[in-house]
Amino acid sequence: DGHLDIRAQGLLYRVTLWETPILAIVSELYYRHIGATPDWTHVERVTRSKGELMRNHKATFSIFGMRRRFSFEVEDRVTSLLKESAGNCLFGTSNVHLAHKHGLRVSGTHPHEWIQFHGAIFGYKMANYVAMEDWINVYDGDLGTVLTDTYTTDVFMRNFSKKHAMLYTSLRHDSGDPAVFIDKAVRRYEELRVDPKIKYIIFSDGLSPEKAVDIQQLCGDRIKASFGIGTNFTNDVGGGVEPLNIVMKLWKCKMTAKDDWHHCVKLSDVGGKHTGDPQEIALAMTTLGIKQE
């Protein structure tokens, strides 16, 4: 039907890692197929400008741009340019190879799949809680950023305990109004008697440097902010080229090979952007007390 459909099946800790290289390959091959080429003068100019903007506003960020990049060559050059122009405000990159090549930190968070799996196996009401507990048991406080919107932020905040508020360094915002999210995060930390000023929100929802600066001002001195900026860095190549809207999500899972498959769903903070089997989405929303749109 004119759509590319790619499926990966296997053990979760292996399958999850396929998302980024698969989508990067799809994106790069698409632009080769249509004969698009980067305007390198544009890339150099806008990337330096973006890096300087972040540095001038002392806004800390990481590059989250591998999945929908124009090409490896573009991401490599953009990473080098941002390292030069943004200075210490560039915290790192989620691309492990380019982190090694350019002497940067590896920076990222766990994906929605981690919590989707827990929802399918342990139930939607306990998904965030058990997922956070399992992460803590493995990493013992390291890799301390937690995604909040797999089953909506409101549901997450009900599962976010004093223990989690202390052990996790930051919350990741990936959908919905950032101003509303800031209010909810600060309020929950205060309810748990944890000072929000020592915690971070990692914003990563379709950001540009301009949006990041605006969000940093919204945070003010209430809570710290950092940013994961992706496609705006690695697929801004001029010439009218538009980034692809491509994604991979966990669709089904089971505990052992003999078990039946369980549907896996994601409930976005933005209405109409839920993913998964429609009947399972309705079940999850009913279970969690979320009103149907």
Results as ranks from 00 to 15, higher is better:
112 H>V: 03
113 E>T: 01
114 W>H: 02
115 I>H: 05
117 F>G: 05
117 F>R: 06
118 H>F: 08
118 H>A: 03
118 H>L: 03
118 H>G: 02
119 G>P: 08
120 A>S: 05
120 A>M: 02
121 I>D: 02
123 G>W: 07
125 K>S: 04
126 M>S: 14
127 A>E: 11
128 N>F: 08
128 N>K: 09
129 Y>E: 07
129 Y>V: 08
131 A>N: 01
134 D>L: 05
134 D>E: 11
135 W>C: 02
135 W>V: 00
135 W>D: 01
136 I>Q: 03
136 I>P: 01
137 N>W: 09
137 N>H: 11
138 V>G: 04
140 D>L: 04
140 D>F: 07
141 G>F: 02
142 D>F: 10
142 D>G: 12
143 L>Y: 03
145 T>R: 00
146 V>S: 03
146 V>R: 00
147 L>D: 06
147 L>H: 08
148 T>G: 02
148 T>I: 01
148 T>M: 01
149 D>I: 02
153 T>D: 01
154 D>W: 07
154 D>F: 07
155 V>C: 02
156 F>T: 00
156 F>R: 00
157 M>R: 06
157 M>L: 15
157 M>G: 04
159 N>L: 06
161 S>F: 10
162 K>P: 09
163 K>S: 13
166 M>P: 10
167 L>W: 06
168 Y>W: 14
168 Y>D: 01
170 S>L: 14
170 S>D: 15
171 L>R: 01
171 L>F: 09
171 L>Q: 02
172 R>P: 08
172 R>V: 12
172 R>S: 12
175 S>Q: 05
176 G>K: 04
176 G>T: 03
177 D>W: 10
177 D>G: 11
180 V>M: 13
180 V>W: 14
181 F>E: 06
181 F>Y: 14
182 I>P: 01
183 D>K: 15
183 D>G: 15
184 K>E: 10
185 A>T: 12
185 A>H: 05
185 A>I: 06
186 V>R: 09
187 R>G: 14
190 E>S: 13
191 E>H: 09
192 L>N: 10
192 L>E: 13
194 V>I: 15
195 D>V: 07
195 D>Q: 13
196 P>I: 00
196 P>Y: 01
197 K>V: 15
198 I>L: 12
202 I>L: 07
202 I>K: 02
206 G>I: 08
206 G>P: 07
208 S>R: 13
208 S>C: 12
210 E>R: 14
210 E>A: 15
210 E>H: 15
211 K>I: 15
213 V>T: 13
215 I>C: 07
216 Q>R: 07
220 G>C: 11
220 G>R: 12
220 G>E: 11
221 D>I: 11
222 R>T: 10
223 I>H: 03
224 K>D: 06
225 A>R: 08
226 S>Q: 10
226 S>N: 10
227 F>D: 02
227 F>Y: 12
227 F>S: 02
230 G>A: 11
232 N>Q: 11
233 F>I: 14
233 F>T: 12
234 T>F: 04
234 T>L: 05
234 T>C: 07
234 T>W: 04
235 N>C: 15
235 N>Q: 15
235 N>G: 12
